Amino acid sequence: MRRVPWPLVPVCWVLLLVAACGWGGAGEGDEGRAPGAPAGVTAQAGSATSVHVMWDAVPDSTRIRVYEVYRGTTKAEEVPGSQHMVDVTRLRPSTLYSFTVRARDAEGRLGPPSRAVRARTPALAAADRSAPARPADPAGRVLGAREVQLSWGASRDDRGVVSYEIRQGGTEIHSVGGDQTAAVVTGLRPGTAYVFTVRARDAAGNLSPASAPVRLTTPGADDGRDTAPTGFTAHTHRSGGAYYIDLAWDPPRTDGVITEYQIRLDGTATTSLVWGGTPPRGRSAYSFYAGRTAGEHHRVRLRARLPDGTWGGWTPQRAVTTAG
């Protein structure tokens, strides 16, 4: 919880917003072509009832509105076009599944399916409440401005480790099978300090404590401008004798979904906005209480927590005045 200066309310708002999908298939007169098939699709059992599916963004990914993940011929999940991984849940233990991914663009055109990948869920361990041991001796090395390699010692578990989760800043960014003790993490930012941890998961879904942190800094420079929200505006309005500051912005284009933003008011971080569900697509808006006094001047800006767990660049600062 962050300390919020008066007159703001000291609360971390959780916005449970779910965007509705209302597009149809493409008509014969639509211009352009449907998206291509996603490449680099992988599937790895995460527990006895879940599989983690990942894929690469299709070329010209700015046109992609959603990715659809299919279990056999059944659509199992749908995620925003900025997201390239998902956990498919509610599966059966000891079962072989086949997954494909398809891209749908802003005009509603659905591309062809990716190549099929298979994953078998392990048997469910009855009454297993024992979590795996913490992964030991984690290490890492920088491979370039946008990728690093991590390694760790195998975790011990009485029933066996099914998968390892790699986290950065509390955000899961990668997953590998329980027989792997190394991974390459891509899609990072140049000139950025990262802190990675690894957790082991068993067939019952029990998670180990996080490993010791691995601290790595990618070479190069990043001024944050490419990761700042765009089209940022700020205005005020009066309601019920009080004043509110109204913000609107477009999310930065990133390789992954953004679920959290931070507001800075008059030079101090004040509030975090966290979407509890699927973030709205396109432009976002938020209003917050600014007191009951007219003629007060405020300066406000915004930044996003990126899919790699780091904070992106700040928007330009906007000045607002509460008016009578």
Rank of each mutant, 00 (worst) to 15 (best):
A204W: 11
A193N: 01
A200F: 08
S114N: 10
L216Q: 04
D128T: 06
F99S: 06
A76W: 14
A123W: 08
V195I: 14
A57Y: 07
R65D: 00
V184E: 04
T270Q: 12
G170W: 00
G313F: 05
T254R: 07
A210Y: 14
L207T: 12
G295V: 07
T322H: 11
R129Y: 12
A136I: 05
E147V: 13
R90Q: 06
V184C: 03
D30L: 03
A126K: 07
V101E: 00
G295Y: 03
P219T: 00
Y70C: 14
A106Q: 13
A183F: 03
A290E: 04
L110V: 01
Q149A: 14
A183R: 04
G27Y: 00
F288A: 09
G256A: 03
W311K: 14
A43G: 13
T259Q: 03
P229L: 11
G191W: 03
V51Q: 05
G240Y: 12
W152Y: 11
L273H: 11
G32W: 01
V320M: 08
H174E: 15
V257P: 01
S284D: 06
R305F: 09
T74N: 14
K75V: 05
P229I: 13
L17V: 15
P112N: 02
G32S: 02
G25S: 00
H84Q: 07
Y97G: 07
R283E: 11
H235I: 04
T259C: 02
S175F: 04
I173T: 11
R318L: 12
D157L: 09
W23T: 05
R189D: 11
A126N: 09
V14H: 02
H235M: 06
R3F: 10
S130I: 14
L150P: 15
L273T: 15
R115N: 10
D226Q: 14
A116Y: 00
A269E: 06
G140C: 08
S272I: 02
G29V: 05
A131W: 06
V142C: 01
P5H: 05
I263H: 15
G153M: 15
G282Y: 11
V9E: 15
A37C: 01
E172S: 08
R33C: 07
V9A: 14
L150I: 05
